[in-house]
């Protein structure tokens, strides 16, 4: 019986259309969120979704700006991006240093990232999706065998070093078992609902002070603390030199395998 199901799954998946270009299909699963606020159950089920294989690059974002002049540096509406928006570019339609073309685009606001994804027919991943996808173990990293614990160390090592003046290109750090590149170790990434981090009991936000250890799944996941602290410090119009994004997409209903 089991074989039959597996076979039928295989058949279905063979009939699936090719996945969207540059995206990876992330198989859903059960996930323990880092943040245990009480509002969410301790485990949640994540549905299948597509996620960009790598973060959006400067060159890709340039195409978006060309097609949408209102997102030019000199035109952007100030409530949608602060004045550092794309400040590392040489001009409205000029990335500047050619070495940066394949680096992840940074200095972009949430609104800009959101607009880019919608322009591509996609959307920003939710925090749950992003965390689920980023939790996968590295397939290879500096030739070492890898475990979940190693992932945490790998991330902390990145955080330990100041960012270089030109960010490394995408797909330059590691690939994880979902086939995603650079989920950690290259840039921070926007998520759709980054502003959903709430204080546990109306106290200070969860990621300041000693209260930081209240309501989290793993007190030793320092890398997660850092990601959530960063999210809490952001506002949607902010732009940061080490903050980029990648897009997600729902699985079209016809592609969903009936269980």
């Amino acid at each position: 019986m089991k074989t039959l199901v597996a076979l039928s799954l295989l058949c279905c998946s063979m009939r699936l259309p090719a996945q969207p270009s540059g995206m990876v299909r992330i198989p859903g699963g059960v996930f323990t969120p880092f943040l245990q606020t009480g509002a969410r159950p301790s485990k949640i089920t994540v549905a299948d979704f597509y996620l960009d294989k790598h973060a959006v690059t400067n060159a890709e974002f340039l195409q978006f700006v060309r097609a949408n002049p209102s997102w030019k540096r000199s035109c952007v509406t100030r409530i949608f991006a602060d004045s550092n928006y794309l400040q590392h570019w040489a001009g409205d339609l000029d990335i500047g240093d050619p070495r940066a073309a394949n680096s992840p685009v940074t200095n972009i606001s949430w609104f800009a990232a959101d607009a880019y994804c919608r322009w591509k027919g996609n959307r920003l991943p939710t925090m749950t999706e992003w965390e689920y996808a980023a939790g996968a173990a590295p397939v290879h990293y500096k030739g070492r065998a890898n475990t979940r614990h190693d992932l945490s160390r790998l991330i902390l090592e990145w955080y330990d070093h100041p960012a270089p003046s030109i960010l490394p290109p995408v797909m330059s750090t590691y690939r994880n078992s979902f086939g995603l590149y650079d989920m950690h170790g290259l840039v921070w990434e926007w998520v759709e609902d980054f502003n959903s981090i709430l204080p546990a009991n109306g106290g200070p936000g969860p990621f300041v002070c000693g209260a930081g250890s209240i309501g989290t799944a793993n007190k030793e996941d320092y890398a997660a603390y850092m990601r959530f602290a960063l999210r809490q410090s952001l506002r949607a119009e902010y732009t940061v030199r080490t903050l980029g994004f990648r897009c997600a997409r729902d699985i079209a209903p016809r592609d969903i395998v009936k269980k």
Binding site: P204, V208, Y238
Partner: peptide, 27 residues
Amino acid sequence: NKMPHNIDLHAVCGPGGGAEATLTVPG
């Protein structure tokens, strides 16, 4: 910088000692 930072001054009387008011993203 890569990290958000803030400051808690023990000379402050008020929740967080300024920590919540000063959580600041790079730039």
